[in-house]
Amino acid sequence: MPHMIRAERVSLQYQNKQVLEDISFNLEGGKIYGLLGRNGAGKTSLLSVLSAFVKATSGSITIDGQPIFENAALMEQMVFIRDVKLDEESGKAKKYIKDLSIFRPNFDLDYAEHLMQRFKLPTDTEVSKLSRGMQSALHVIIGLASRCPITIFDEAYLGMDAPAREIFYEEVLNDFMEHPRTIILSTHLISEMESMFEEVLIIDQGELILHEEAEILRDSGVSVTGAVEQVDYFVQGKHILKEQVLGGTKLVMLYGQLSEQEREEAKAMQLSLGPITLQELFIHLTKEDKQ
């Protein structure tokens, strides 16, 4: 049974700054979730509260109905991986992994070994001497091989180059199929990762602005192109994400699906309709001019 994660009206203040504001959601678990947000949107804060590294100023996080804060039994079920520098760590990479594995009841050392080979991690090098990319790989290896029912990666792959990220994506999907669990990945590399997600949460300026199935989201924007007046008439009263004019032609991106009738109407007005990508949707939903 996957664990149900529930956030209820979570807010976080940090040195008089409102970092998270009134965030509520339910994750039924057993899925791969994408947490998307721009830099500074509050992704790390939210994941830190979610994994009980930080206590929310108000509101609560529960797993299967139990509050997570200072709950040792639940903490064992959860791993939170961040791309922190390990420049102070002495000891070799292999030993570092082994030492950490003791705290993880499901840790699979053989799988960790396999991952070390795939990422070409120099296991006999001291952790502090590893390159940025290899330190990222080390974090990721621990995150995956821990096989925790709730596995959270907070942009843990940022230090990796493109080929290493590919390996990471492959391993996440593969291991998820063999050992189903709840995996939460935060990122702003949307076009690269969006196809991995079953559900997507978008936060912006500390607020949760959207939580939706990825496939529905991929289908919830539409671009309308045509003569300026016709387009203006058609998009009246609709949720406009972006407008662009080139000569007598106008392109408008809309959020939300069009009804069959609206599609017919657009066709009759000789407007052309097209899809918009999740990346575009994200960019326009999280623009700065909100306030």
Partner: peptide
């Protein structure tokens, strides 16, 4: 198979199943 498609395109298994 689902596994082949997931691995090849790096997509979520639930999406393939759908």
């Amino acid at each position: 198979s689902t596994n082949q498609l997931v691995a090849y395109y790096k997509i979520n298994p639930a999406t393939v199943l759908k």
